[in-house]
């Protein structure tokens, strides 16, 4: 099965291991993620101003690319990995469906591409795996097991909010726990699963993010986790790379590795984790579980 796929900017640089593991794992399921030709930045962050069509153009352009590639591949689906991209694309896609007049305006402005017809279905990989592959099938296909690796599943904001684009329950999401549980991980109760990571404050208000990361990582540890698992390059940056800054402020702080969920799926299906892509090295934790 070939499905159009939107990577997003981070997956081409800092989060290359996210993309790579997702592509590899999908292959083991017989799913080929086909990168959109000429895709552009999703246009993050989604603009909430009702008449701000200019800031939705980036998404609409991507939708056109997805629509055209989809026609060739015989599908109307578009898969994304980054929670931020997913959220932005999905929200604009909803608007395009609900507000045909605005879509017309956007289409007329984008005179170098075919019109967007409003029919693409934007899916986060998690949703795709759940709805169109099934976790049971994954459990059957994946040969290896994660040996009871204790994980704190972290969703942050953008996978579960707002209501009309959420991939799971807003307050008590379970998809990650279910999925990773099927391949042998043990996900702990984690009250901070939908806490904000501090997001873009990381650029000019590092202190705020340091506090967030300190709290979230400690909470994961207190609940018995050995690692955090997530699906957003910005959350990953704040929760993984910012641990260095946390340590500088809180010298007794104990670092904890952070994984993309696709890294663990790929690991469970026999691939290696690229430990060099991590700030907090996962080597000790992996060794502890014989992985």
């Amino acid at each position: 099965m070939k499905i159009p796929y939107f990577p997003g900017c981070s997956l081409k640089s800092d989060a290359a291991h996210f993309e790579q593991s997702a592509i590899e794992f999908s292959k083991t399921l017989g799913v080929e993620l086909v990168e959109l030709p000429n895709w552009n930045c999703c246009g993050t962050v989604h603009s909430l101003t009702t008449d701000d069509i200019m800031h939705h153009l980036a998404c609409v352009r991507n939708m056109v690319h997805a629509q055209e590639l989809g026609k060739q591949l015989g599908t109307n689906k578009l898969i994304t990995l980054c929670a931020m991209c997913y959220n932005t694309l999905a929200q604009v896609n909803e608007l395009a469906k609900k507000k045909p007049d605005d879509l017309k305006t956007a289409n007329e402005f984008i005179d170098d591409l075919p019109d967007y017809e409003g029919k693409v279905e934007v899916l986060h990989l998690l949703t795709f795996l759940n709805n169109y592959v099934s976790f049971e099938k994954i459990a059957k296909v994946v040969k290896g097991r994660l040996n009871g690796l204790k994980l704190a599943p972290y969703y942050g904001c953008l996978l579960v909010r707002p209501e009309h684009v959420k991939v799971d329950d807003r307050e008590r999401p379970v998809l990650l726990s279910k999925l990773l549980g099927m391949v042998g991980a043990k996900c702990v109760e984690f009250p901070y699963a939908v806490e904000c990571c501090g997001s873009y404050h990381t650029v000019n208000l590092k202190e705020a993010v340091i506090e967030k990361t300190y709290t979230i990582v400690n909470n994961a540890r207190e609940n018995g986790a050995d690692a955090i698992v997530l699906s957003c390059p910005l959350c990953e940056f704040n929760l993984d790379k910012r641990q260095k800054d946390v340590k500088a402020v809180y010298p007794t702080f104990e670092p904890m590795p952070v994984f993309y969920f696709t890294e663990l799926l790929a690991l469970a299906s026999g691939k290696k984790v690229n430990v060099n892509a991590h700030y907090v090295s996962p080597e000790n934790v992996l060794r502890k579980y014989g992985l």
Binding site: G8, C9, S10, K12, S13, N38, W39, N40, C41, G43, M54, H55, L57, A58, R61, F109, I110, D112
Partner: peptide, 29 residues
């Protein structure tokens, strides 16, 4: 800040894919 409006590409007398190269920069290519 690029919003992918593609106005730059339309403004290029050399017919370069200006927006595409800005997008490439955004993703570090």
């Amino acid at each position: 800040r690029c919003v992918a409006c593609n106005t730059c590409t339309k403004s290029c007398p050399q017919d370069l894919k200006v927006m595409d190269y800005i997008q490439a920069m955004k993703r570090g290519d």
